[in-house]
Design a protein around this nucleic acid. Structure first.
Lengths: 135, 135
DNA sequence: ACTAACTATCCCATCCATGAAACAGTGTAC
DNA sequence: GTACACTGTTTCATGGATGGGATAGTTAGT
């Protein structure tokens, strides 16, 4: 029987999540690399599921995704209490995400991008109290 | 200046937690090694804070501890309001300045610039009381 | 005394994740 | 056309995490 520990990192899911988010924002690998501190080459490998990223890079990327780390870990807790599956909502248009998208738009001047970001930020702040859902 | 990402693994806290739990249970390193699948030598290094364990071992150990991984990660989520923007534009986003920038943007048609200026002007007037500036 | 069975730590060869740079492909401007 | 600035991928040398085995230390039994 030895031991049977099925805990491991679901690298592919992380890579898919990164790629999805990155393409949604219209960012290049190097854009994400600059923001997260993970090199573009490593990012490419992660998105394609080659190898396993180290803990620091996983922390950086899940931090960028605003995603709980356990979402990409296959964890078997020792005390057998069922952990409620984390449902991940990747599409909330926060001001930061909108801002990243705007800044990445090569057709917008930095000033325009900043203005639009500011606009969205103001509107978001106004409505976020009433439009809150998530559950 | 390019980026400031403070996400990393708090290895020492993990090691301390492991050691505490292990000694509470009166287990040896090899006992824990057999149960978790992490070798005794690696376990010793982790408890002593030498080096950084890889993601799989972190998953195994946090799984054994029944501890959420994020507890040992210093995560800075992208939607946190304290996150410093990648590029910082210090100017005040008043309607006049926004309009000037929009008109100066050669990638925008005059009509689009007008529309966006007007939109921002209305929003600014409406929300300027509640809008908070980045700092 | 001497084993024998433990313990944790150290040594070391192997493996592999990493990032910089080179690469090949795609537009885009001039 | 010819550069130029992008894109994602791949090559490559290096650093470091790993686990098996060696080591030193401790305890218990004989």
């Amino acid at each position: 029987m030895a031991f049977r520990n099925e805990n491991y990192v679901k690298t592919l899911e992380l890579g898919q999540a990164i790629k999805r988010r990155r393409e949604e924002l219209g960012l290049s690998l190097r854009d994400v690399a600059d923001v997260t501190g993970v090199s573009a080459s490593t990012l490419s490998r992660i998105e394609n599921g080659t190898g396993k990223p180290d803990a620091d890079n996983i922390a950086r990327l899940t931090g960028w995704l605003d995603m709980p780390m356990d979402r990409i870990m296959n964890k078997q807790s020792s005390s057998s209490n069922e952990v409620e599956p984390v449902i991940y909502y990747p599409h909330e248009a926060t001001p930061e995400i909108v801002e990243a998208h705007l800044r990445a738009d090569k057709n917008l001047s930095p000033e325009t991008a900043n203005a639009l970001s500011e606009l969205f930020r103001v509107a978001y702040k106004q409505f976020s109290g009433t439009a809150k859902k998530r559950k």
